[in-house]
Design a protein around this nucleic acid. Structure first.
Lengths: 227, 227
DNA sequence: TTTGGACTAGACCATTGAGTCCAATGGCGT
DNA sequence: ACGCCATTGGACTCAATGGTCTAGTCCAAA
């Protein structure tokens, strides 16, 4: 019985390519329709592959989904990487926010975070998926936390600040903001949520590099507030 | 052609009861399995009704889902009502947080917010559902905002505070916190998110009724922090 | 008491979707 | 060259699912 749930197998270059292609296509479809509403036939058609190919590389649909999750985690984290890597000052934190906002605005229709959607749909009924996603969010939080920790170590943040809790709160604000934004079809909630979270970090700053927010001075957001 | 998507129709007491029963059962199933993975047959079986009954009260599955959404909105809002109604002081805000946390901890398995789940699954592909949910979140935000507004009017909050943005941020923190909590299977993220959001409100307080949080003094949460 | 319409039963249908199977084919190491 | 095995094609099975249809039963008002 060959066929593994996991990549650990002999794979020629061609095979790896096909496998990757299936994952990418599946990821895109799942991102827009959700995992349960994405049929294998959909994936097959869009990728030009055949049934047997899919089942040659994945044990079953769940295995494909798991692969998609891994792929999305790497993808999202990679996208955050450049920003998070040097997340070591309040300025950098605000820049990160601007980038996130820009990214959210860019995608047509405010589709939300791939990881958030996946987590919401699968966490409750697919343990393997849940733990995988939990791990993904954990890495994300760690990256954020590392930056915050560095700031504190350098004395930019007060010792009373709790990097872990702060990171968690920022991540939650991002996810919640994205969910509300996608529902209301306006980034206003996302802006407000991030504003509050970062403002809170700024409050713990020792130097006054803090950028006064208050009534929110969103230069980078073209979106007008609802009147 | 009778059969309407909406309730606006002659309904005997018996009919209304049956209809309500179907909605309740569907709501429960959808809450735990998601809308697309809940089959009409599931609903039928659990409610002891027959196909024709379901189709007598609802035009199709989408109509049922819409009804479930309305029901859940009322349900969630009603649950918040007592707290939100007198949300007029920092103390009340912290009590609200404690109640939310307790509620989240109570449900087995940290299932998340019904509205959040619904929104996440449906917002992107079912316009009617999306706008309905957007309306629900809007009412929720309004309730929060009203309390914050009252506080400001009474002079407990600084004039610089923006009730609407604050309410949005709190709601986002709650939703994001719940999502992360359900994924990680620990309320830690929810605690952190709410802590930051409320702490931010407290920062705008004029009197010092603010409860110093900092490294988080969670008296009401039995959950230990991860070591 | 009759009668129209609300309400209930459940067989039936068409489609979709996950997963299986057998038969090729083609690339790569020896 | 050759043979093995990764790879590919695609028809086929079987269960689940949304939705339809016919045939009543029950209730309330005229």
């Amino acid at each position: 019985m060959p066929k593994e749930t996991e990549p650990g197998r002999r794979l020629t270059a061609r095979g790896a390519a096909m496998r990757g292609r299936l994952i990418e296509v599946a990821a895109a479809l799942i991102y827009e329709k959700g995992a349960s509403r994405t049929s294998l036939d959909d994936v097959l058609e869009k990728s030009g592959a055949s049934k047997s190919q899919l089942y040659h590389y994945f044990a079953d649909k769940d295995a494909l989904i798991l692969a998609v999750i891994r792929w999305q985690i790497e993808r999202v984290l990679a996208l955050q990487q450049p920003h998070l890597a040097q997340l070591d000052s309040l300025e950098a934190l605000w820049r990160w926010r601007d980038a996130v906002l820009a990214l959210a605005t860019a995608a047509p229709g405010l589709r939300g975070c791939p990881l958030g959607s996946l987590a919401n749909e699968l966490a409750g009924r697919f343990e393997n998926a849940r733990s995988l996603l939990a791990g993904g969010f954990d890495r994300w939080r760690e990256a954020l936390e590392a930056g915050l920790g560095a700031m504190r170590a350098r004395g930019e943040l007060a010792g009373s600040a709790d990097p872990r809790a702060l990171a968690l709160a920022i991540l939650a604000a991002l996810q919640g903001g994205l969910l509300l934004a996608k529902t209301a079809q306006t980034i206003e909630p996302l802006e407000a949520a991030l504003e509050v979270a970062l403002e809170h970090v700024a409050r713990h700053a020792t130097r006054k590099s803090a950028r006064k927010g208050g009534a929110a001075a969103a230069r980078s957001s073209p979106e007008p507030r609802k009147p």
